[in-house]
Nucleic acid binder design. Structure first.
Lengths: 192, 192
DNA sequence: GTAAAATCTTAATCTACATTAAGTCCGTTT
DNA sequence: AAACGGACTTAATGTAGATTAAGATTTTAC
């Protein structure tokens, strides 16, 4: 079963006994999310964090003018949620939906916090996970402030090689912060 | 002594016994960093994380064209380091220097990791700290992608009310991602 | 399998912000 | 107190990327 993928992910940072592995896996709920279906709607509470084993989810906000801005893609082996809502349990500002047919394991905030107390070293894994997310977010922020669109596109392709040629280009445009028309022009130039 | 400020900061998320407080505080090193002095140079290792008790530090990168991009300000009660270098112990991509005469307590990576093992609940505090930083970084990323410069300036003033009128305007411009000339024009419009 | 809808491309025009440059107002240094 | 460099302003000109619009191509739905 693909529960193993979660265990493998956790064991990147910590070692878990068989008993601990069992305790963990029974808290995850398997779910299929078909293309265009939502895992989280803006204004709801982010009850769960998802670990994707197949397909791809994305998180995004919608601005005053109705434009989407994609914060994160989550292909296989990535974690995704609305961190703000998940940790504060206040209304989310993000939407999360599937851009491909997706399979994921969901873990509720309540169960995660309970697991932190039952398996203290689990807290280490999620601290490290969050540290790495922070570094990634800061790196992207600096890039957004300092690099022109063409290089941000190149960086996107390096960060998400597995989905760069599968997902719609307008999603990539929304992620790197340009219009689909402009991205189309950029790609036309280089022929890539 | 101002060590108390660190303890107060930590006790926002966890409760510490007197013994634990003592164990902690002896690991922190007090340091004065005068205006324009560096705490970290690009290419060095970020050995320490700093907790600022007075003044203000900033972290920033310098792009290919020599322009500065400020990632974070750290006035009193804020933590600051180059997270990438601090957690990976690879060469930093950021500089950290003082924009005001500053007093801070430094904690080395080595001592922090030792403390995580000696006081497991400390890991919780830093997980939560990192979670909040991540939420802040993601919020700013979305804002950078979706809001015009004028509103990003307003948001800066809300995030850093204590320093908005003390630090040079060119620093604010570098943080919100515009030239000093354009920020000057923005401010001229509203008279603020 | 075909119609409708969504996505992608191309091109003309427009705008938020950058660049350049010149001048003003500091706070420091000597 | 003069001289200096750094910070801020103003204004003319330049440009990366937005907007609008129209057609071409691919995907989805029935």
């Amino acid at each position: 079963m693909s529960v193993k993928k979660i265990i493998d992910n956790l064991q990147k940072n910590i070692v878990l006994s068989k008993a601990e592995q069992d305790l963990l896996t029974e808290k995850f709920v398997f779910k299929k999310i078909r293309k265009k279906q939502f895992m989280l709607h803006e204004g709801m509470l982010a009850k769960d964090v998802a670990f994707v084993v197949k397909g791809c989810l994305r998180s995004y906000s919608i601005d005053q003018n109705g434009f989407e801005h994609i914060l994160q893609f989550a292909p296989a082996d990535w974690w995704i949620t609305d961190m703000y809502s998940f940790i504060s349990q206040k209304e989310s500002t993000l939407n999360i939906d599937a851009i491909l047919d997706t399979e994921a394991y969901l873990l509720s905030r309540k169960n995660l916090l309970a697991l932190f107390d039952e398996i203290p070293k689990l807290e280490r894994h999620f601290r490290i996970l969050t540290e790495n997310s922070l570094v990634g977010s800061q790196k992207r922020l600096i890039e957004t402030l300092s690099l022109p669109a063409k290089e941000r596109y190149r960086n996107f392709c390096n960060t998400y090689p597995t989905i760069a040629h599968i997902i719609p280009q307008k999603s990539i445009a929304s992620y790197i912060g340009v219009t689909p028309e402009f991205l189309s022009k950029l790609r036309g130039n280089t022929g890539k």
